[in-house]
Simulated assay, not measured.
Amino acid sequence: MGASISLDFITHRFSATAEPTLKDIENRIEPSELVALIGRSGCGKSTLLHMMAGLLIPSEGCVRINSHQVAKPSAKWNMMFQKASLYPWMSVKENAALGLLFDGVSKSVAAERVDTLLDMVGLSDKKNANVQSLSGGQQQRVALARSLATEPDVLLLDEPFSALDAFTRTQLQEEVPNICRERGITMVIVTHDIDEAVAMADRVLIMSQNPGRIVGEQAVALPWPRRHMDAGFQTMRDELMQQFKGTDTGLAGRHTAAAEKPNTAESAA
């Protein structure tokens, strides 16, 4: 069962005299819920995600996971970044097992668990390969296996597919939510891509900037798996686009252009 995440009146400044980057953030993410954070560049989405991961402590307020205040990173709330951040001198299997070994799991148990996960993410034939020989999409699959190996309650994703080709990105947009749903993992993804938010989330939180606030949300009541060309998908995407436009009129022109190309992976902000 995934964990709940409570964002309790978070305000953050990067220095005592700076204007707040985030202000009065309050929300609750339910156990096993899949949530997307969208907003314009600079609105503080990644900053908020780093707070959920325990990589950054808010100036005011706090993040609670299952009612426990988050003050440091944990193997129970793992984060994937835009880059896979793998060790180039290690094999696929060694990279995927790294978090388990740091967590004190024996090599034999780690190897067994990682074998299963690499099969799940489609890398069973690459287990002993050097990660430098892999494509960008394959490296992100290794990072995903590493994040899942510690059996986390929460998976935090900071635009992990933004640098991938459209085909690989679409595959992972389908596979990652499926894995989280099967395992009961709570997922939060930061994305600029409204299509990605609709494809992956049960609920979308919309942020404004200067300072960053959660100014809207939209439930995504669509069946799984989700197909970009389905009428329901397009309707939901358009509704979310309109709500997003209403929070920041400066984005209207770019959103209109994106709406005319529903199949593209262009970001919406």
Rank of each mutant, 00 (worst) to 15 (best):
A3V: 04
S4K: 05
S6L: 11
F9K: 15
H12W: 00
H12C: 00
H12P: 02
F14G: 07
T17W: 08
P20R: 06
L22R: 01
D24P: 02
I25L: 11
N27V: 01
N27G: 04
R28E: 13
I29Q: 14
E30C: 03
P31Y: 11
L34G: 02
L34E: 04
L34W: 03
I38T: 07
S41L: 04
G42E: 05
G42T: 10
K45H: 11
K45C: 14
T47H: 00
L49E: 07
L49M: 09
A53P: 01
G54V: 03
I57M: 12
S59E: 13
V63Q: 02
S67T: 09
A71R: 12
S74G: 15
K76I: 07
Q82H: 10
Q82F: 04
Y87P: 00
E94V: 07
A96V: 04
A96Y: 04
A97W: 08
A97E: 14
G99I: 07
L101T: 13
F102V: 01
D103C: 05
V105S: 03
S106C: 00
S106Y: 00
K107L: 10
K107Q: 13
K107G: 01
A111N: 13
E112H: 09
D115V: 03
D115K: 09
T116Y: 03
L118I: 02
L118S: 06
S124R: 10
D125M: 08
K126L: 11
Q132E: 08
S135R: 01
Q139A: 05
Q140E: 06
R141P: 05
V142M: 12
L148S: 08
A149L: 01
E151W: 05
D153F: 01
D153G: 06
V154F: 09
L155N: 07
T168M: 08
R169V: 13
T170K: 15
T170Y: 06
Q171C: 10
P177K: 13
R181P: 07
E182G: 11
I185Y: 05
I185G: 09
T191H: 09
E196V: 09
A197I: 14
V204T: 10
Q209I: 09
Q209W: 02
N210H: 10
P211R: 00
R213P: 00
I214C: 07
Q218G: 08
W224T: 11
H228I: 14
M229Q: 15
A231K: 09
G232E: 08
G232W: 02
F233W: 04
T235P: 07
E239F: 02
F244G: 07
K245F: 13
D248L: 03
A252P: 01
A252Y: 03
R254L: 12
T256M: 12
N263T: 15
T264H: 10
S267Y: 08
A269D: 13
